[in-house]
Design a protein around this nucleic acid. Structure first.
Lengths: 478, 478
DNA sequence: ATACATACC
DNA sequence: TACTGGTATGTAT
DNA sequence: ATACATACC
DNA sequence: TACTGGTATGTAT
């Protein structure tokens, strides 16, 4: 059992994907992006030096203002559990430790362990391709409630160092350890002198140890003046390592200047390609291109680029903590079908599931959105605002089904809507006015109504549908 | 013949308006505004001192940046012809010179002379109220082509001092006389010394004289470092006067600080009331309220407020000149009616008229907007995008009528849509691809079709309609 | 308000 | 045979 | 994209 | 009896 080189890995992936509808759709998207980039370059060609210079000046003015607000007073830590889900499973099933394994299903992996990664098996890869890369791969289905429990334990450690830590997902958090450092400087004096470390480094090393003691899992960490830098740093000595970037403008600029833009959180595949077309691959190449960027990107992106180019980032974690949830959704992927009853029934089921999630969080919403993905991977959303915020599965379901019917009606009879994904989302959320009684009534009513009846389609399309859905489908056919 | 005091004038106006639908609608709008202001004050109440301080700091940072961009190098002049339309009429009919007169119709006045103003008769006042204030008032219907011609003469004078003068309307313009001052400093040396005036003042005085020689009409002017200040200044020594504000930060700040906000172009009735509720009536009170404003207004307004508070304004007139026209429209007010044929016919007529205007300017548009005002003065717009830009009256008319029909259909049969105004606007404009031939064909076709036929409504609703309109109305009724 | 694109885990 | 599910945010219309 | 509000002459 | 007409821009959804 040994790894492959990158070429071999790519070859296998290519063969596995090539010609699939997924791949075709991806290619189309890439073509569209290529066209957009071409147009962008064309626009860039037209720019007069005067215009560019003017734009550069304006950007420099913004940069000056941003620079003035630089805050180096905080010590921010980004902690990231190493291959979290996989690590938990390996901890609980030691026989998984020496074999290539991944957590996920046949359609998608969440994480893989380091042995599997040698074969090119990574998070975000579909299981069936992973198996081609590594036939010995052990696939463990995810066990979210367990991960959640472990995460809670890790949180307890975080709370020691910063009671206002900001959890970004089950395996990732930001901490502001500035206050802790001040309060406990003396206690670490000796420790950090011995290891020739800064106070921050000593504290974070200790924190990671405590996490390991509490969970038997390792974490990596980045220490810097703001979240953006800390996040980049946590990636540098993975796994089970940490990286400290001194809070000093000079050090930060040296660091950021040679950093590939793609390392920055928020710069994804598309932005990377766009910037690359402009000759920008490193953060240090942003500033020399201020004028060009100003003329090509939106104000919002510009601000973002300027801040990246200066190594600036968030220093106030309350900006992550405070926000209310904006939307809640549930979706499901299935083998492509155009059976109207099946699709309608799925929407109803999703609405009921969504109701459960909303209930748990005490949320109600005003905007119902139906999400569809065709068998060709074309995503669409259709939404409709409600008069009143609700989480009533009947109401949400009715609206979502109406939206689905409208989509079906748009398709010609000879090529009916054929989907592989359906989702229902609620947004414009507010807190539920906790009159638990009334809600309960509604729910029971709903279940009373949901007696099963047979669809009246041909046998090949046969499926179980609830009465109300059957009625709507009926109406649609008439 | 003598004037009235303000109380008497207001009393007459109140009596004339009171109880009218117009007045009722205005009252409703005021109530809505009062509610909005109340809510705003409530929000203001909730603000913690910390929040306010933070907001203040951010605003001050913006102010600093704006201040850094202050440009005192230009000398901008705002020239405003004195009671322009009225003055032209008085010039051409000398017997009007000694009587109270106004230009306008029974429904609205454009200008009044200074005698009429003593009675409270002003621009924007309906003629029938003006008559109650001043029964002797002579109402002269406007003669736009004549005013346009006079305006052209005035423009010739402007061109001497600044070839890039920016006409804001027939009777108003901005000039940047900086270059002229440099080039002609010597010539004015003696003149300005004698009158103890600055160079700028001497030049503007001469310009006003030239205007008077050329047109027998007087103009007032403001001279300052930017258009915002110049505009305010031109109002200070009206009529036939000028005001010079030195381009010196100290002088500007003294000037602006004691200036009522309402004098600023762009601050109208609503904003004045809002700011007043916050205790702001003078421009000098803006800066002490930066934090409050920041928390209550949009970014766009904030920028505007900051610039006002610093006495900053536009110094580059090309920003007025360069822009293409964004929309073109025509509208008509009539005695309220709900006769569908009449309304439909009016929309057709407006489309034809609009076509004429667009043709003259060589414009085509993509977005058709129908504007309606009910007999209760409720304004609405309904728009629809076209596939292709056009100025074809048939196309525009068809869409506009469709929009009108949709509005009619929304009304219950027992209270049909009753309108006092209809308008058609085209926007998303572009230059007409000057294939004059094809257009011509379309126009003639249109006139061929427009043979008159009688409507089939009851006699009280009887009116003439073209065939195509009759057909649409017919379809609507079915 | 809607729809869709981008991004992150 | 075959490419997730949940959420936030930006952008365009 | 739409609708509407504010403002100016 | 009875309160314009034309355009731009901002704001909300």
């Amino acid at each position: 059992m040994q790894g492959f080189d990158a070429a071999k890995i790519n070859e296998i992936i290519r063969k596995a994907s090539e010609g699939s509808r997924f791949y075709q759709h991806k290619q189309q998207a890439q073509q569209k992006l290529d066209a957009k980039i071409k147009e962008m370059l064309h626009t860039a060609q037209q720019m007069s030096p005067q215009l560019l210079e003017k734009a550069t000046k304006k950007m420099e003015a913004v940069a000056l203002e941003c620079e003035a607000g630089r805050d180096l007073s905080r010590t921010i830590v980004h902690v990231d559990m190493d291959m979290f889900y996989a690590a938990v499973e390996m901890r609980d099933q030691p026989n998984l430790k020496d074999v290539p394994m991944a957590v996920g299903g046949n359609s998608m992996l969440s994480t893989s362990n380091y042995i599997a990664r040698k074969f090119g098996v990574r998070a975000g890869m579909p299981g069936f391709i992973a198996r081609q890369l590594c036939p010995a791969l052990v696939l463990v289905p995810p066990n979210f409630s367990k991960y959640k429990a472990v995460s809670r334990v890790v949180e307890q450690v975080f709370a020691i160092y910063d009671p206002n830590y900001a959890m970004m997902s089950l395996d990732e958090a930001y901490l502001d350890i500035t206050d802790y450092m001040e309060a406990n400087a003396d206690a670490y004096q000796a420790k950090s002198e011995v290891d020739n470390e800064t106070l921050a480094e000593a504290i974070v090393r200790e924190m990671r140890l405590k996490i390991q003691e509490a969970t038997q899992l390792t974490a990596s960490a980045g220490i810097a003046a703001n979240t953006r830098l800390a996040k980049v740093c946590s990636d540098l000595n993975k796994p089970n390592g940490q990286y400290y970037l001194p809070s000093d403008t000079r050090a930060i600029m040296d660091f950021i200047n040679k950093l590939p833009i793609r390392k920055i959180s928020g710069i994804g595949n598309v932005t990377e390609q766009q910037l690359k077309a402009l000759g920008i691959t490193l953060c240090g190449q942003i500033r020399p291109n201020y004028g060009l960027l100003r003329l090509l990107f939106s104000d919002c992106s510009l601000d973002y680029f300027v801040r990246i180019s200066l190594g600036l980032g968030e220093t106030d974690l309350s900006n992550y903590t405070s926000g209310e949830q904006k939307s809640i959704s549930t979706e499901t992927t299935f083998t492509g079908t155009s059976c109207k009853q099946k699709l309608m029934q799925m929407v109803s089921d999703l609405s009921i599931e969504l109701h459960g999630d909303m209930k748990k969080k005490g949320l109600v919403g005003k905007l119902v959105t139906l999400k569809t993905k065709t068998v060709n991977f074309v995503l669409k959303t259709r939404s409709m605002a409600l008069g009143e915020p609700t989480s009533d599965p009947e109401v949400m379901g009715k609206v979502a089904r109406k939206l689905l019917i409208a989509e079906m009606e748009k398709c010609p009879v000879d090529e009916p809507l054929s989907l592989r994904l359906l989702g229902v989302r609620m947004s414009n959320l507010s807190e539920e006015a906790s009159s638990g009684r009334a809600k309960q009534t509604t729910i029971s009513k709903m279940f009373e109504k949901q007696t099963v009846s047979a669809g009246r389609e041909s046998s090949s399309n046969y499926c179980l549908v609830t009465e109300s859905v059957a009625r709507e489908v009926q109406a649609f056919h008439d």
